[in-house]
């Protein structure tokens, strides 16, 4: 069996002051090339799971491995974040630079790329998502759909090996949803999507998991997903 992209073992996590833990003895595995949907009622821990993987939250017990390496300290997660992209629920949280180009170039610049190369990568990523001519647009003046696509470009510009999407369709119109489906189907990397929209998941992932206290239970959702290639 190949090495898992992500492996969580015996994770216990509770928010401070919460009566019950979100996860207790939680186990989870994501294989390379897998496209997975995470479903479940509000508050079941879908977003928490993503934040644990990328180290924004730390478990009280258990181990997390990403790309076969165990991660526990700040330094480990800094490295993880270079290769795992997280698309936030609210694009306004993600777009903080004044202009689109600056925002998309922010990640590559942090990766140590020289400005000219960062700009080139940003332009290319924007073009790949059909966002040509957005360079000098002011981020807070974009529409909701544009904001979502630009923040996706900002994440993809870092050329991640794994993409985590937190309710990417919330508040989007049908057209933007279709564009998003199209973009995701064209990606060659693994991704996990938290979503409440079964229709969207049907088009983007092959399997879905219901997030529970101790594990993710596979469901029959998403069988009609995209074909390989």
């Amino acid at each position: 069996m190949p090495e898992a992209l992500i492996e969580l073992r015996n994770i216990t996590f509770a928010y401070p002051g919460a009566a019950r833990p979100v996860f207790e003895g939680f186990n989870f595995r994501l294989e390379p090339g897998q496209h997975m949907g995470l479903i479940g009622p509000n508050g079941c821990g879908k977003t928490t799971l993503l934040h644990l993987i990328i180290g924004l939250l730390r478990p009280q017990a258990g181990t997390i491995s990403v790309f076969g390496r165990e991660v526990s300290r700040d330094k480990d997660f800094t490295a993880v974040r270079q290769e795992v992209g997280l698309l936030f629920q609210n694009a306004d949280d993600q777009l903080f630079c004044p202009t689109v180009l600056e925002d998309v170039a922010f990640g590559p610049l942090n990766q140590g790329k020289p400005p000219a190369e960062a700009v080139a990568i940003a332009r290319e990523t924007l073009a790949r998502l059909g966002l040509e001519g957005f360079d000098d647009r002011v981020t807070y003046k974009l529409s909701g759909g544009e904001k979502k696509l630009v923040s996706l470009a900002a994440v993809l510009a870092m050329q991640p090996r794994l993409l985590l999407l937190d309710e990417p369709t919330a508040g989007l119109d049908e057209d933007t949803k279709l564009r998003l489906i199209h973009i995701l189907q064209g990606l060659e990397i693994s991704y996990m999507i938290v979503s409440h929209e079964h229709d969207f998941l049907n088009h983007t992932v092959k399997e879905c998991c219901h997030v529970h206290l101790t594990c993710c239970r596979s469901t029959k959702e998403g069988k009609g997903g995209k074909s390989d290639g």
Binding site: H51, R81, L86, D93, Q94, F106, G107, N110, Q111, V155
Partner: peptide
């Protein structure tokens, strides 16, 4: 959340 998003994109 903004700070978290910045961390995710490699801000140090």
């Amino acid at each position: 959340r903004v700070y978290q998003a910045m961390l995710c994109r490699g801000f140090h």
